[in-house]
Design a protein around this nucleic acid. Structure first.
Lengths: 204, 204
DNA sequence: ATAGAATGTGACTACATAGTCATATGACTG
DNA sequence: CAGTCATATGACTATGTAGTCACATTCTAT
């Protein structure tokens, strides 16, 4: 966690540092990101940095937390009324929310994405805790929907929950790799519909 | 491409260097992997390294190529008779082959996996070319299977092809994140069956 | 046996980085 | 106003790295 000195900073300065850090982590990636460069860009002294943060990881994990919080906020209305929403519609909203975030905050999305691929020494408990929480929530939701007959009784809840997490986490990024030059939102929306058709009724 | 000097080396020495390089890239990851350490581990002189390779990327991309070739060879029998094999069975073999590779060569799998997440400056044309080739092959196979009624006519071939690539590339890795301590092959096989149930007949 | 080519070597240069610390500046308080 | 505490600073240290190069060794062909 950043030191108190950092949170005591006037908001403008704090956000300036955060923004330059985001830029650096986005451009260079976690490993190559350089404190010296962040300090230079932000026009603060090297010593000041260490008055605000313990080290690189301290800053990085703070950014990850911010991004994660923002992503959750953006997805809030997906989780509005999950019980009253058909599961396929729920998936549609979940995926589209992920895509919107990706398109609106490409740098945040890229950083969050790299974070998930990092060795456990870095993402530590944070990632697996998040995965577990998300998995449990989905698996239980699916169980209830199975009981109500909205989802077939032959479906393995854990598997479906994992597939859902999997897609919502990696879809936008993966899809972008196919359209190297980038695609418009429209294109993503159609892809989601095609995927949902398969998830709902299978490939036969 | 490595220089001729490297390929002129006695095979034992060549493989020794390769193995130490794999170890280093596996442990440290692409960015932090250090030529100095590879050289030290391999007990060759720094100067010799530069007689074999242009630089770090030269070695790295050579490793990636080897790993990719090996993975393709391991998956050879998946592509034996795709037309005569039911698509779901084809998927099962494809996924299981990926899982086997992952379990038998965890270091190779980890390196290949990181490669896909690297910025385009590194994985360059190699990745997108591979993705495109794989996608085209699958999309055409799916088209033919649709014509034969094996796959529903309402299915979007491109989407199904992308989902297939997606799963075969990331599944094992993702699944492992859930079972941090690692799972036995048996566990993976069951998960694949559950997934195929959903892909074949949908979640209803 | 010998010339000449190919290969091996490791000390060295040049550079970048993380993190420290003595000192300066500001802010607040009794 | 004096004194104390919080914050700012940037030169400096210690460390690690990629890549070079003049020289040593080994191999090959005549």
């Amino acid at each position: 966690m950043p030191h108190a000195t950092f949170f005591n900073l006037p908001e403008a300065k704090r956000e300036l540092i955060v923004n330059h850090a985001v830029e650096e982590f986005y451009q260079a990636g976690y490993e190559k990101a350089s404190i010296s460069k962040i300090v230079e860009r932000s026009k603060i002294a090297k010593g000041s940095f260490y008055q605000y943060f313990e080290n690189k990881d301290d800053l990085y994990l703070y950014l990850i937390e911010r991004i994660h919080r923002q992503k959750r906020e953006a997805a809030a209305l997906v989780y509005q009324d999950p019980e009253g929403t058909d599961f396929v519609e729920f998936l549609r909203r979940l995926f589209l929310s992920g895509i919107s975030f990706f398109l609106e905050h490409p740098k945040y999305a890229a950083i969050a994405n790299e974070f998930m691929t990092l060795p456990k020494e870095v993402n530590g408990t944070f990632l697996s805790a998040g995965l577990n929480e998300s998995h449990r929530y989905l698996a239980e939701l699916i169980e209830r929907k199975k009981a109500r007959g909205e989802i077939g009784s032959g479906i393995d809840s854990d598997t479906l929950a994992r597939m859902t997490t999997f897609f919502s986490m990696h879809f936008a990024d993966f899809f972008m790799k196919h359209y190297a030059s980038g695609a418009e939102e429209d294109r993503y929306v159609r892809e989601v519909d095609h995927m949902l058709r398969i998830i709902e009724r299978g490939i036969r």
